[in-house]
Amino acid sequence: MLHLRILAPTELTDDAVAILEADPGVSGLAVVRGASLRPPGDLIFADVAREAANDVVDLLRATDLHHHGSIEIEPVHAWLSQGGFDAELKAPGSSADAVVWAEVAQRSYEDTELNWTYLSFMTLATMLAAIAIVTDSQILVIGAMVLGPEFGAIAALGVALVRRRFALLTLAARTLLVGFAVAIAVTAAMALFTRWLGWVTIDDVTGPRPSTAFIYTPDKWSFIVAVIAAAAGVLSLTSSKLGGLSGVFISVTTVPAAGNVALGIVFGVKDAILGSTLQLALNLTGMAIAGWATLAFQQAVWSRLSLRRAGQRQVRRML
């Protein structure tokens, strides 16, 4: 169940209320006339089944309400309502499977913002990965994978393509490129400093590393794992059940590969640079493709369900 809070200009209130009243997926509706000061108008509350949210929001957007007022969507984690239960039964599909595109798009824009926090997490994760490689520690590699914030921007690439938001596509690509470039540069500076101190030697970079050799030796499984992980990650982001993201973070070798690229640059190890760059490219490509394919499939499924709901609404009007 989702809760809508709408600030509507007076001239758009009746249209918004009519849309909400006509949809069987809306179980609760309240209007407080004159309660909104900015914009001058009314405050509307509505409870809507998650499965019906896309159709309701699309109809509200068609009135241009989001330009002159606001539409806020909040999840309701616990509720007691027979009307709400009936609304969910009438809405095709399952609430756990429902993709609320407004929610997904909002999260994508937030995850692709190139800010100090994103760069800090990316840099710290890459530095930790470099230390993991030098010490041949799988535990530190996993820590670096979990710390890296890059998956949100990768998932945003798929959202941008499926929803045709090309501004988001540009933002996501820029965030990934700048994030990895800054992280590799700072990690390389750290590696250069530790080399000068004598803490890290060429043998630490080129010697046997059985626990972390997978970072710079990509193969077909690297791509397959990236595809599976990205599909699971996108499902976690779009579903109301957020349980799979931690598994995604410890499955893909993006940040560790970036850390090894930095070490390779400082110590002049071409094999490490080439192997890790290929590993990074395979993971990013596999995740981007899988994210797009998963989202495209979800959109196709929910578009069919939306058509069913539209047909049902038409039948009810005729009756």
Rank of each mutant, 00 (worst) to 15 (best):
Q314F: 12
P210T: 13
E72S: 14
L89D: 12
T175P: 01
T285N: 10
R38A: 11
I133S: 10
P75D: 13
I6V: 14
V32P: 07
G207F: 02
V315T: 14
N260A: 13
S211D: 10
H77I: 09
A18W: 09
E51S: 14
I273M: 15
G25V: 13
G69P: 01
W101Q: 03
A310Y: 02
A167H: 06
V32I: 15
A160M: 00
A30Q: 15
L280Y: 02
E72C: 09
W196K: 01
R165W: 00
A91F: 09
G41K: 03
D111E: 15
P24I: 07
T212N: 03
T175H: 00
I6S: 07
L2Y: 10
G34K: 04
A35D: 06
L278G: 04
G152T: 06
K270L: 13
A30C: 05
A96E: 12
A132H: 04
S240L: 13
D86K: 11
R38Q: 12
M122A: 15
S276I: 11
I184S: 05
G207K: 02
A22C: 05
S137C: 03
S240M: 14
L305N: 04
L282V: 06
M190R: 01
A78Y: 11
A262G: 10
M145F: 05
R313A: 10
L43H: 10
F297T: 13
Q299Y: 10
N260R: 14
L197V: 01
V134C: 02
D271F: 06
I228C: 10
T13N: 04
A8D: 04
M1V: 10
N115Q: 07
V26L: 10
D97H: 11
V252D: 03
G286R: 07
F267E: 01
G158S: 02
L278M: 13
A22E: 15
G264Q: 08
V225E: 05
G179E: 02
I273P: 07
A230E: 09
A144S: 14
R313N: 04
A213H: 11
A257P: 06
G41S: 02
K270E: 12
Q298H: 03
A125K: 08
D55W: 01
A129T: 03
A272P: 01
G25R: 12
G291I: 00
A281C: 09
P256V: 08
L197Q: 07
A188I: 04
D97V: 02
G93Y: 02
L60V: 03
T238P: 00
E103A: 10
V32G: 05
K241V: 15
I202P: 00
I228F: 11
R33M: 08
F45C: 00
W199F: 12
M1D: 08
R313M: 09
L124Q: 02
L147F: 06
P210W: 11
D47T: 14
V261E: 00
G286E: 11
K241T: 15
R309T: 13
T175C: 07
R304D: 04
V57N: 03
D15C: 06
S239H: 02
F223E: 07
G244L: 15
G291E: 07
H67I: 09
M1C: 07
S222P: 03
I73H: 04
A183T: 06
